[in-house]
């Protein structure tokens, strides 16, 4: 008998409590309690009164659900909507799988000398900084030299696709947020949630929705995690555009579209680029975790290091991730710096 028996008795609810008593599976605590209940008589002083939690109340009144009933209820709820969600989301997100698989295939299939050459050329053109190009060259030759080239290329392919999609989705969302205060109020809590949810928690519903073998599973996880900064900084960047300049644009009769493309976006570009830099870094962080759900790349090696206690493999691949991160950060910052310069000091 439980501490709260007397409570339900005094409320006259015994009938309600007992008539719905169902024989659900026992919890571990109940089992333990049962095994020693015969010997121990429970003290019912105020001092060791248990908190009236679901489990404790259930002990007194069977009609009250246990906590495990609640979690299984949540699970049931999710499973119920799963099929209809899948029906909508599956075709909608299918292109993501193709894109990821395609780009991984393309990156891996391209001969190493061609890929590294093209990468160096692109970096040079985008950043116009010898330092960044040199860093890229050293990084890639090092990765290739220690035979981590194919893993690193897969990681890069995933980051490439996910960052691209994040920017494509995030910039318009950011623009809409900067234009409509109400929309901004609605979106900010979602962004906060996406940023604070532990990255593992993203994966749980996604695993239920999509099959683990599909690339879009980790694609969505990475995009959801990485899209936040580009949205936030686009919104911020546009809101920070000098009010006087906007007024000037208005005074000369610019339409909303002219203002957006001729004034606001160009002036917000440094902030948007800072957002893209953050998005790239967060994609990299997430792509490692996403190896848990079959994302290829360097994360797989880290996971192998953990699972098989292969210390060397884990450490070396971890180090590779670090230098890849430094590379991405430097290159995107060099690009940002170049844009900044062309805006204020050319």
């Amino acid at each position: 008998m439980s501490f709260y028996d007397s409570l339900f008795d005094s409320l006259g609810l015994q009938d309600w409590c007992s008539n719905e008593a169902k024989a659900g599976p026992m919890t571990m605590a109940e089992l333990l309690a049962k095994s020693k209940s015969s010997t121990v008589t429970e003290e019912t002083s105020l001092w060791n009164m248990p908190f009236p939690s679901l489990d404790n109340l259930h002990g007194a009144c069977n009609s009250i659900p246990r906590t495990r009933d609640m979690t299984s209820g949540v699970e049931q709820l999710f499973l119920n909507v799963k099929s209809s969600l899948q029906f909508v989301l599956d075709p909608l997100t299918q292109p993501l799988s193709w894109l990821l698989d395609g780009s991984i295939w393309l990156f891996v299939a391209t001969p190493w000398w061609l890929l590294i050459g093209l990468t160096l050329l692109t970096v040079q053109r985008v950043t116009r900084s010898k330092g960044a190009t040199l860093l890229t060259a050293i990084t890639w030759f090092f990765l290739a030299f220690i035979d981590h080239y194919s893993y690193a290329v897969q990681t890069m392919a995933i980051i490439f696709v996910c960052t691209g999609i994040s920017v494509l989705l995030g910039v318009p969302i950011g623009i809409a947020m900067s234009k409509y205060d109400r929309f901004q109020k609605g979106v900010i809590p979602i962004l906060d949630m996406l940023q604070t949810l532990p990255s593992f928690v993203y994966l749980i519903p996604l695993i239920f929705l999509f099959s683990v073998t599909e690339s879009k599973l980790y694609g969505i996880a990475i995009i959801m995690y990485a899209i936040v900064p580009v949205i936030r900084l686009t919104d911020l960047g546009i809101r920070l555009v000098d009010k006087d300049i906007i007024e000037g644009a208005n005074a000369f009769g610019m339409s909303a579209r002219q203002k957006l493309f001729n004034v606001e976006l160009p002036l917000a570009l440094p902030n948007i680029m800072a957002g893209i830099n953050q998005t790239i870094m967060m994609s990299l962080a997430m792509v490692v975790i996403a190896s848990l759900v079959s994302a290829p790349g360097l994360g797989v090696l880290v996971l192998r290091g953990i699972n098989n206690l292969e210390l060397g493999v884990g450490l070396v691949s971890g180090f590779c991730i670090v230098i890849l991160a430094i590379l991405l950060d430097r290159v995107s910052k060099a690009t940002l710096a170049r844009i900044d310069v062309s805006q204020s000091n050319t």
């Binding site: 000098d242 006087d244 300049i245 007024e247 000037g248 644009a249 208005n250 005074a251 000369f252 009769g253 610019m254 339409s255 001729n262 004034v263 160009p266 002036l267 805006q343 204020s344």
Partner: peptide
């Protein structure tokens, strides 16, 4: 119509210039 008017019938000069920096 207001935009048309601002485009062709009235121009404005500002205290802090309000030129497009880019």
């Amino acid at each position: 119509e207001l935009r048309k008017m601002r485009q062709s019938d009235m121009s404005m000069v500002f205290q802090n210039f309000a030129l497009l920096p880019h």
